[in-house]
Design a protein around this nucleic acid. Sequence first.
DNA 1: CGCTTTTGACCTGCGC
DNA 2: GCGCAGGTCAAAAGCG
Length: 174
Amino acid sequence: MNDNSGDFFSYSSSSASSAAATSSYLSLNMVNNNQANYEQMEKDSWNYQSSRDHVAADHVGDVVNTASEKSKIRKAEKKIKKPKHAFQTRSQVDILDDGYRWRKYGQKAVKNNRFPRNYYRCTHQGCNVKKQVQRLSNDDGVVVTTYEGVHSHPIEKSTDNFENILTQMQIYSR
DNA sequence: CGCTTTTGACCTGCGC
DNA sequence: GCGCAGGTCAAAAGCG
């Protein structure tokens, strides 16, 4: 597990104690000073966020029943570029607990990949942040988690440390 | 009982 | 228009 702790994501943390993180699941938590770092990572996205809110505001109070209404909204939202951030994580498990609560809403087989991709949505009301989790087929020790959108609410859980996992992460920002 | 997960169907964009 | 691939929906099943 420590074999690559150095060359991944240079998260400037004081304690890179590692150790844990070999068990059945990894805990990834963004609190306190870590929160600041996370927001720094999300810096590029704030422009998008405001324009996205604008679109959403058009539909505040609307009762959306019909399929055509739904698709109209979906189309409008699709026009707006949403921030996407992919984390590549070296891990045997693909359930990375980042402190938010997610509900799985889909799973798809990906081409040229024997592993499926999983789709999750943030369960917080009004927060439609999505993420998708995918495992590399050529290197099944690597999990790619792609976040889409920015959480509009504080973190929900506060468990243990963020550093352990973050020191092993590599960021691809786009 | 109220969530979450599963899973096939459906929708949409894109290349041909 | 057709087929494919990626993304989402939603009913049913599962679980604490």
